[in-house]
């Protein structure tokens, strides 16, 4: 069993109400003028949510954040100049001092939701939806 490379982080605040959130619920509409956050996403901003998805190819060696995607992905947009992220992705930020372990398995992420444009200074990665993770576990 090499499942233990999955990180199990259980910090304080167990038992908080957490709202399940699906990838299909992130955006109201995607138009040529950009993406619109869905009413549900806007209502959950700042609250604890849980999402299930796949860890995208790492952006950098130290995984203090990673990208959660709806389906398993081949492309590493920062490795290949022409590749692109699908629009429905979520940036997962690890708690300070903790790093994620790479995995090909489906994972569930629980943490505080934040929405709005934000640019990571190190990588230049622009995110629209972020989860500040409290807990990451293998999805059942």
């Amino acid at each position: 069993m090499r499942l233990m490379f999955l990180l199990l982080l259980v910090l304080g605040g167990l038992g908080w109400a957490q709202s399940p959130l699906e990838f299909s619920e992130l955006y109201g509409r995607i138009t040529i003028r950009g993406v619109e956050f869905s009413p549900k996403l806007q209502a959950l901003n700042g609250k604890t949510v849980s999402m299930t998805g796949w860890m995208a190819p790492p952006l950098k060696p130290k995984l203090d954040f990673f990208v959660l995607t709806k389906v398993p992905l081949a492309t590493c947009p920062f490795c290949s100049t022409a590749a692109d992220w699908p629009p429905d992705i979520v940036l997962v930020i690890m708690p300070p001092g903790r790093a994620a372990e790479p995995t090909t398995r489906r994972i569930q992420v629980t943490g505080r939701l934040e929405i709005g444009i934000k640019t990571d200074e190190d990588t230049g990665f622009v995110s629209l939806v972020r989860i500040y993770a409290d807990k990451i576990s293998e999805a059942r």
Binding site: W54, P57, P72, P102
Partner: peptide, 14 residues
């Protein structure tokens, strides 16, 4: 659509 090959999270692909 599905990608035929995905990242193994460690720099390789499966």
């Amino acid at each position: 659509y599905k990608d035929p090959t995905i990242s193994d999270g460690k720099g390789g692909y499966v």
